[in-house]
């Protein structure tokens, strides 16, 4: 999250709403460990990354849903080992879980 701080400050100062997605858990092979984070502004601007590019697109969609109130903040899972997993998988075959919430704290 360290690398996101400047952008988060900038958005907050401008009154732009932002969603924050953080990797909380990685099973098997995953490109980024717990703590990897990306932020998505309500205008769809994106900073940071949570994988090697495998799931970022889907994370943007989910982040915007959280900001729009269409989805509760919570854990989303990417990978093939979980029935509820999103269709988007990691090329490395691992599973990652992210916590997505509005950055309003």
């Amino acid at each position: 999250m360290r690398e996101l701080l400047d952008d988060l400050d900038r958005w907050r100062a401008a009154g732009v709403r932002v969603a924050l997605a953080r990797v909380v858990d990685v099973e098997g092979s995953g490109p980024r460990g717990p703590g990897a984070a990306m932020a998505v502004s309500e205008h769809g601007e994106v900073v940071g990354s949570v994988s090697g590019g495998c799931v970022e697109g889907a994370v943007v969609t989910e982040s915007l849903s959280v900001l729009a109130g269409d989805r509760e903040p919570g854990v989303i899972t990417f990978g093939y080992s979980d029935d509820e997993a999103f269709a988007v998988g990691l090329t490395c075959g691992g599973t990652i879980r992210l916590f997505v919430e509005e950055y309003d704290w």
């Binding site: 909380v24 509760e72 903040p73 854990v75 916590f99 919430e101 704290w105």
Partner: peptide, 12 residues
């Protein structure tokens, strides 16, 4: 520390 599931999701 962030509650990510269960009662109080989002609490820090």
């Amino acid at each position: 520390a962030t509650v990510i599931a269960g009662p109080g999701v989002g609490a820090k």
